[in-house]
Computed example of a mutant assay.
Amino acid sequence: MKKLLIVLSFALVLFLGTSLESSAASNTYTVKSGDTLYKISKMHKVSVNSLISWNKLKSTTIKPKQKLKVTGKAVKTASKAKTPSRAASGTVVREFTVSASAYTASCKGCSGITRTGLNLKKNPGLKVIAVDPRVIKLGTKVYVEGYGYAVAGDTGGAIKGNKIDVFIPSKSAALKWGRKNVKIKILK
């Protein structure tokens, strides 16, 4: 009987030790070649913003063999509020004129994934603008004249200073938008 108790106790200790170890291992993820924050966020059912916050990342660039925390306190993301409503718009913090062009996710070679991890191909109804983060912080709610309420959720190589790109799902509608000067309101 004593031997049986000792064997069962030993088995219990082994079981608890491995379950704690696997639990700790599931809290982190080792980046593999070809991984993106978006891909990792979908794999672990968390937002890209949460991954950035939990790992104190300065950008969305990650490297193979990098260890990332994949659990933690949820972070509110821009993707939760698809299009800011008038009721949730808050107050206007700043208003200025910008040069606005349009872009689409339907181009050859376009991934459709924004800088903040929004998938525009799967969610063509999202109202998203590409901004210079030094002028308009990513995740900011905005109102764009002629476009409506949107979220600053992307960046672009040609978007510098007081320029924005508005996301329009169809290529023909994006070309029709052209380039124009519009008033933009930064909302709190």
Results as ranks from 00 to 15, higher is better:
residue 84 P to Q: 03
residue 26 S to V: 04
residue 27 N to F: 03
residue 114 T to E: 05
residue 177 W to N: 08
residue 132 D to M: 04
residue 2 K to R: 14
residue 121 K to M: 02
residue 155 T to I: 11
residue 155 T to C: 06
residue 166 V to P: 06
residue 140 T to R: 08
residue 19 S to I: 10
residue 20 L to I: 12
residue 97 T to R: 07
residue 41 S to M: 04
residue 123 N to H: 14
residue 28 T to I: 15
residue 157 G to R: 01
residue 178 G to P: 09
residue 132 D to H: 07
residue 73 K to D: 15
residue 86 R to F: 02
residue 49 N to P: 02
residue 111 S to R: 10
residue 51 L to N: 09
residue 142 V to S: 00
residue 162 N to S: 01
residue 17 G to D: 10
residue 94 R to G: 01
residue 86 R to C: 00
residue 31 V to P: 05
residue 118 L to C: 05
residue 103 Y to A: 00
residue 4 L to A: 14
residue 141 K to D: 06
residue 130 A to T: 03
residue 106 S to I: 00
residue 185 K to W: 12
residue 66 Q to M: 15
residue 37 L to A: 11
residue 128 V to A: 02
residue 100 A to M: 07
residue 113 I to T: 11
residue 101 S to L: 03
residue 29 Y to W: 10
residue 180 K to I: 10
residue 137 K to F: 05
residue 79 S to I: 13
residue 152 A to G: 04
residue 63 K to N: 13
residue 164 I to F: 01
residue 96 F to N: 01
residue 116 T to L: 15
residue 119 N to P: 12
residue 74 A to I: 08
residue 3 K to D: 14
residue 167 F to P: 03
residue 57 L to V: 09
residue 4 L to V: 14
residue 93 V to E: 14
residue 50 S to H: 02
residue 104 T to M: 01
residue 146 G to M: 06
residue 39 K to I: 03
residue 126 L to R: 15
residue 175 L to N: 14
residue 47 S to E: 11
residue 84 P to I: 10
residue 147 Y to W: 04
residue 21 E to Q: 11
residue 29 Y to K: 11
residue 77 T to N: 13
residue 188 K to W: 08
residue 109 G to R: 07
residue 85 S to A: 10
residue 70 V to C: 12
residue 133 P to R: 08
residue 23 S to Q: 13
residue 85 S to I: 01
residue 6 I to P: 04
residue 155 T to K: 02
residue 79 S to D: 12
residue 180 K to M: 12
